[in-house]
Computed example of a mutant assay.
Amino acid sequence: MKTKSLRDTPDRFRVLNAFVDFTASELRRSELLVWMTLYRDTRNQVASTAQRDIARRCSVSRKTVERSVKSLVERGLLRVVRQGGFRKGSSSYQVIPLSRERYEELQRPK
């Protein structure tokens, strides 16, 4: 089993801090829980987690997870890498802490 280098930990905290500071307040509770669960499951920049598992862990319905994933994708905070489903396995997602618009807004000189 490969151990995680200590260099990776600060990057994960930077991403989490950016998300909390600039994005979290704009999300509904279910969207926040889904994003956090997927972020926690991210390995090599991709989270492969079944929506039923997310629903169970977040104590919400699978339909709520489906709506939250759709909303997060529309906001630019999540990208579907591979669509799973019945007999296809889990979906894979790339979790993004800031939407492109928010990132560009923060980069503009004041």
Rank of each mutant, 00 (worst) to 15 (best):
V95M: 01
D41N: 14
R102V: 08
V15M: 04
A50F: 13
P97A: 14
R56Q: 15
Q83K: 12
Q107C: 09
D8W: 00
S71K: 07
S25M: 06
G76D: 14
R75T: 05
G76Q: 11
D11I: 01
Q51C: 02
R79I: 13
D41F: 10
V81C: 08
L38W: 03
V60L: 07
F86K: 11
K88V: 13
Y39I: 00
L6F: 01
G89Q: 10
F86A: 08
L98W: 01
R52Q: 13
S5L: 00
R40S: 12
S30K: 06
S71P: 05
E31D: 09
Q83I: 08
Q94T: 13
E26M: 09
L72T: 12
L72Y: 13
R14Y: 01
S61C: 11
R87N: 10
K88Y: 10
R29E: 14
D21P: 08
V81S: 02
V81L: 06
D53V: 15
Q94A: 08
L32Q: 03
E105A: 07
E66P: 04
Q94S: 03
A18S: 13
S91I: 10
F13S: 03
Q45R: 06
S30R: 07
N44D: 14
V34M: 04
P109S: 11
L38K: 02
I96F: 07
C58G: 10
R52C: 09
D11F: 02
S90H: 07
R7M: 04
R7I: 01
K110A: 13
Q45K: 07
E74G: 12
M36H: 08
S5Q: 00
A47E: 05
A55S: 13
A47R: 06
R12C: 06
L27Y: 06
M1C: 09
G89A: 09
N17Y: 01
G89E: 14
S59H: 11
K110Q: 14
D41I: 11
L16H: 13
R102A: 04
M1H: 11
R62H: 14
S25R: 08
N17H: 08
T37M: 09
A18D: 15
R56H: 15
V65R: 04
A24K: 03
R12A: 03
Q94N: 08
R87M: 09
K2W: 02
I96R: 10
R57Y: 15
A55P: 08
V73G: 01
E31S: 05
R75N: 05
V15P: 00
P10D: 00
V69S: 03
Q107K: 14
E101L: 06
E26S: 12
R82V: 08
T49S: 02
N44V: 05
F19R: 00
R56G: 15
S25N: 04
F13C: 05
L98H: 03
L16T: 08
S61L: 07
Y103N: 07
Q45P: 01
P109T: 09
L72I: 05
M36P: 00
S48G: 13
S68G: 10
L78P: 11
L98V: 02
L6M: 04
I54C: 06
G85Q: 05
Q45N: 06
R52S: 14
K110Y: 13
R29S: 11
R87F: 14
R28L: 10
I54V: 15
V20I: 15
F22N: 01
S99C: 07
R108M: 08
N44M: 09
V73R: 02
